[in-house]
Design a binder for these strands. Structure first.
Lengths: 250, 250
DNA sequence: TAGGCACTTGTTGTATACATAATGAATTCA
DNA sequence: TGAATTCATTATGTATACAACAAGTGCCTA
């Protein structure tokens, strides 16, 4: 019925949700802008019912805000909001690291984590790092964090972390690339990699408090990276990136 | 159209959400049970569209789980899940206390918090405490925690706390009452009240780390209370209470 | 000319109809 | 008698029609 009816296996609701999230994160829908259901119907190809379901999901996800008189608008985040989100994520990931350490992650279950860590090792050793290396880092870093969350062995915690997910390197569109031009960003990656090593070491040695403290400090690197970005680009350009940073589960 | 069309100011979606949440929390819908949309239509009085919206919201809230083949079922929680949820909440509230301390909550903004604390003081001083006092404690304690969250001055954090809200004393139906028979429960309340005092003192003195540490320990009282309940009642009886503890934003 | 009122238009909230997929039962065959 | 297959029933996913409401516009009046 619509221009793109590829992948019939995915429900209309999910497709609408993905499409709308994409529009928000790329900045096509701007913060504070009201979302018209009919317009969303046109751009997503789904009908009003699945579009409304997607809107509800995106609201619960935190990307949209309900308007009292009805409908939804794109949520706007301040710089403080983003920094707080990073702190929250760090706190929760710290707890995940503690759980992994205290509940005795087995040597075998630690293997994938160490593998991701080693892969990151290879990347950051380049000097200067290539754009491709940065891009690969984004993927590997996400995997490292996802594995750590899994190692916590706690479904409720994992759920909260997904909700809080403020992935500083998750942007697919230029945010990280812009950073790659700054040598400071490379330094941050080196430090981040070092943190990874310490956390894994702490987990192996069952040092829960140490693992937690390092993970919390680790997240603050994202805040540093953000401030770096804010200094080097205009605020307006960054808005989509800010939402990317806040966006969960991308 | 239906038997109860009271309060027309509330939307059908919200009413369906409240009705379904009530059915889940009171145990009328049991964990693992599939929720039939048509049945929900009958019991809530709303039509399928608002019912479906409510189901989606409840899933995002964490009370329901999507079934791969379609539809939703009531989520089942293990004792470990509940304990982890309590730990997560404590961790986030610890961060809230830290924020309140470090960001300099004014003396004036602390007033409502201290008022709630003083009110709790009055209650726990009774010996033995009455059932009514316990009930009042539930309300006041919820207010104290809500005010503390507000004092953090962080919307993203407040959002996460609402999601994680595992209110050990939030049960309206018997959970706390059963505990009131145990003198141990009164002791826990006395300790909890002491924690409140320490947290407020730490915030006033700008001791962020101290405020955070005490709040985290404070949440563990809920875990103690839960274990107490698990020892004194059968597991089956407790299932609704367990879900109550997990349930957010009641 | 300015303000208010009424109307029109477009929006969202709700209900229902239709299509498709899953589940269960009954019947048939081995 | 047991198992498998087919058919019927019922569930959910989707689309659309209807109703109520809000907002914006234009006209009329003071």
């Amino acid at each position: 019925m619509s221009e793109r009816d590829s992948d019939r296996s995915v429900s209309q609701t999910v497709r609408a949700q993905l499409a709308l999230r994409d529009q928000i994160l790329t900045g096509r829908l701007r913060p504070g802008e009201r979302i018209s259901e009919l317009q969303a119907v046109e751009t997503t190809g789904a009908s009003r019912t699945p579009v409304r379901m997607a809107l509800v999901r995106l609201e619960e996800e935190g990307l949209l805000e309900a308007i009292p008189s009805g409908g939804f608008m794109v949520k706007a985040f301040s710089e403080r909001d983003i920094l707080d989100s990073i702190e929250v994520r760090g706190t929760l990931e710290g707890l995940a690291a503690r759980f992994a350490a205290e509940r005795g992650a087995s040597a075998r279950s630690l293997e994938p984590l160490k593998q991701a860590m080693d892969d990151i090792d290879q990347l950051v050793r380049q000097d200067p790092v290539s754009e491709e290396a940065f891009s690969a880092y984004v993927t590997l870093n996400a995997r490292f964090h996802a594995l750590l969350t899994e190692l916590s062995g706690s479904a409720p915690l994992a759920r909260q972390i997904d909700r809080a997910a403020a992935l500083p390197f998750a942007s697919p569109s230029g945010f990280v690339m812009a950073q790659s031009k700054l040598p400071e960003a490379h330094q941050i990656l080196l430090i981040a990699n070092d943190h990874h090593h310490i956390v894994v070491d702490a987990i192996e040695n069952r040092e829960g408090s140490r693992a937690e403290a390092v993970m919390r400090e680790h997240a603050r690197l994202a805040a540093r990276n953000l401030r770096l970005a804010l200094r080097s680009r205009t605020h307006l350009d960054l808005l989509p990136a800010l939402r990317l940073i806040q966006s969960p589960a991308i």
